[in-house]
Design a protein around this nucleic acid. Sequence first.
DNA 1: CTGTTTTTGTGAAATAAGGTACAATATCGC
DNA 2: GCGATATTGTACCTTATTTCACAAAAACAG
Lengths: 209, 209
Amino acid sequence: MIGYRSVILRLSHYRRCLRQFEELGYTRVFSRNLGQAAGVSAAQVRKDFSFFGLSGRRKGGYIIAELLEKINQILKKDRIEKVILVGAGHLGNALIKYKGFEKEGMQIVAAFDADPAKLGKKGEVPVYPMDELFRFVRDYGIRVAILTVPAAVAQDVGERLVSAGIRGILNFSPITLRLPERVIVSYINLAIELEHLLYYVNESQRENR
Amino acid sequence: MIGYRSVILRLSHYRRCLRQFEELGYTRVFSRNLGQAAGVSAAQVRKDFSFFGLSGRRKGGYIIAELLEKINQILKKDRIEKVILVGAGHLGNALIKYKGFEKEGMQIVAAFDADPAKLGKKGEVPVYPMDELFRFVRDYGIRVAILTVPAAVAQDVGERLVSAGIRGILNFSPITLRLPERVIVSYINLAIELEHLLYYVNESQRENR
DNA sequence: CTGTTTTTGTGAAATAAGGTACAATATCGC
DNA sequence: GCGATATTGTACCTTATTTCACAAAAACAG
């Protein structure tokens, strides 16, 4: 049995690359090209595809449109996913204005903030006071939230999100949330990502001396 | 032999948690507490520490100050690391204003953008035209850059960074950079992170029916 | 039609990562 | 000082993930 979690993540990358290839006018692709574009080995690509029953033709490669259709099925990308954002500070704002989500079939439909000064409209996206969170999540059946609040209130806001019915949180605040197991939390810790990179850069320079 | 890449990443998390504990006035910590704070198992913490020769006392736990000192040594956090940012759009701006980097001993000392309208000062950080990149990197010995430019120019800017002498790139643009092997690139793809989370949320709801 | 080339698909091997369990040892209460 | 208790350190086991290597199939050239 093949690993699971990591394959799913790679499928997203393949999908992004395949759409780029498609835009460039290609209709077929080889595992080698796709691997290069996605940053993995050719064998990895083939094995991932074979795991999901995606097949190509020996010597002919894979048909991009076919791959995309099946990957979309696997990733259940059959509609635009609506998410909310909590914490309309600098980072929250940047994410609100980020074009990359819509391109991938996801949409931030509302933001929430405790600071009255931040309410109103940010571009296309309305910013509501925290009071309205519960009703909004319930009324629109929102399941996923992006959390960009200061660390000090992140746990608290996280709990409010869960009690409102949120089932997944993309957490940018640098703390580990203690929430019920059923809630899925993904972490993006910007400082740690940068620190990690710096470590390897220092490391590699040390080696070359 | 223990894995390596993943331990280093966890050390950064431990470090962050330990400093929180320290701020709260604690001087010692148990593997269980630290694991919980960092989101890993207690055994994992102990194993990681033992790998680096960090030892505690049976029944007494680990001394926080001692751990921090040794972790700082391992991660080579002995000075403030200066990095630059390229692409002063919404996301770039948010990162410029992000407080989390300084807290962890890293600093964005300058930004660069091709758009003349974006030049000037963003808070504390000056935004220079792209022309000045080469000189700045050379003069200040900058080794790491944060890349927040549009996908269309990312490869191009990446190459310029490398030719200027940059050795590590934290890339927020949704493309895989083709750069010399010696250059270390870390990827943060916001859309894919969100997509991945959404996948698991959908998945878990499916299960519970 | 035959030999050559290319690329897939996959079994086997290698590597990495994480979990379990428990002996060893320190601390504490009395 | 002694028994009870808590916690580390680690050997062993299990699972996950990746790479390697090559046979099988398809395409092509002549």
